[in-house]
Amino acid sequence: MFRIETSAILKVLSYGIIAVSCVGFTGCGGGEKKATKTEKFVIATSGSDTMVNLVQMWAEEYQKVNPLVTVEVAGGGSGVGIRDLIQGIITIANTSREMEPVERDQAKQKTGKDPVEFIVAYDALAVYASMKNPVDTLSLEELAGIYGENGQIDKWSQLGVNMKAIGVNDEIVRVSRQNSSGTYAYFREKVLNKKDFKMGSKDMSGSKDVVELVTKTAGAIGYSGMGYHTEHVKFVKVAAKKGEQGYEPSLDNVLSGKYPLARSLLMFTLGQPDATTKAYIDWLLSPAGQEIVKKAGYVPVAMVKR
């Protein structure tokens, strides 16, 4: 009789100890977390690959302006940013395209808040070609012929570009983006009129990859944000219609509206942003923040009167 009782008592006692220590530990953990939260703010952002460089520059500069706030930057593509925002992992989604109605519904359904949009900069979708390539101007129709599903243009000679002279294969190497990137969606909307891409394009996973591949491949053509331009690759001028004058994606041409492939770069928050996030976005839109836009190779918002 006594045996059983001792073991039972001991059992209860040890469970008690375990339970108490567990509560103690979690209690401590919670307290710590709270303490750090009052000291430092973290604004988590993710999204557009086109904007990664720009947002990174902003984040570094903002660290100097307000050392208490850390802005975390992740890329992955506009789709990733919107998905993360809907799942509540991040505070700000950086996107190079509008949010689709389906995505807005999802956000509302999951979080109960409507996404709020901020235009933070303008970008031009640039068409890149190798330095060796003699091509100068392409019209939107020609681009659709190269990239579109039923487009008939597969050879540079069809565009009147003589690649034989420089000893390069006549075939057009189409460099594109993976099918859920914001840049891909924008190109499809503006150039292909929402129709599909031709199969067989090289689908890169990043804006920078497109420019790098085009830089190295003489017969290639690719599209990417204007901020990724380097001195080893050239812009192809883009004309709205065949026979019209083509324009390079430059600050002036985007501002004057002459360049046909300009778009806005956006940030989304769930509902109105809290004070810290609001302060950050306000700073982005201030002259100091917009100066960085210019430095990153994009077009500041303040200069475009809407």
Binding site: G77, G79, I82, Q106
Partner: peptide, 30 residues
């Protein structure tokens, strides 16, 4: 140039949204 099954998954999975079924039990096209 070609594309493999594995590379397709890794390139596209990151941005493919995991959406739930709607009220009537059918999934949106996305």
């Amino acid at each position: 140039s070609v594309r493999t099954l594995t590379a397709t998954i890794v390139a596209e999975m990151g941005e493919a949204p995991r959406l739930d079924a709607g009220m009537n039990g059918s999934f949106p096209a996305e």
